[in-house]
Amino acid sequence: MRTITHLEQLDADMVRQTLGGNSTAYNGLVTKYQRQVYNLSYRMLGNAEDAGDLVQETFIRAYSALPSFRQDASFLTWLYKIASNLCIDHLRSRKAKGALSLDMELEEGREPSSERREEAPEDCAVRGAVQEIVHKAIMNLPERYRTVIVMRHLQEMSVEEIAQTLNLPTGTVKTHLFRAREMLRGRLASVLEMETDGKQI
């Protein structure tokens, strides 16, 4: 049987309080996890506005489905499951509509505010350029590979957690991760070469 951590127990208590009519408890859960859900959504959708909407939709769905939450997985994994399904639906409807080109979408959603350390303006510019290339490389991955790479390396989820979230065998998650990393390596070859040569972008 799965061991429930102290953190998960706290979340379960907040869920119980919400179900008992205490909306402040749900506000607490939103405050606690909105950032992770937003980052997952942003890296999946590549657009800050869509990501913000998706976070709201995720918490609304989660709220209505709260009675069905069981402690088979952590609350965050459960949220990720809702968010990743919404992201996939969103991407598919975008594809079906023949949406905007990827460049336009990325233009709209250019790196929103983030935690930045104090650094020289030129270093900041280089860092920003590299980050944009990496972000575009992730956005160009097929949806299934993008999902696992974002969950594993940006959200720092374990392979088991990803498998649980996506209802996939762990072997499949590992295969997707492997292929995704290979694709990324190819697409980031220029950045890697420049780093090796000590050149600036």
Partner: peptide, 22 residues
């Protein structure tokens, strides 16, 4: 390659976002 991924910044939401969600 992995370091490039992991160096991507964690993005921040506006301060009143949870209020908006609620």
């Amino acid at each position: 390659t992995l370091m490039l991924l992991e160096q991507l910044p964690l993005l921040e939401l506006p301060k009143d976002f949870s209020g908006l969600v609620m």
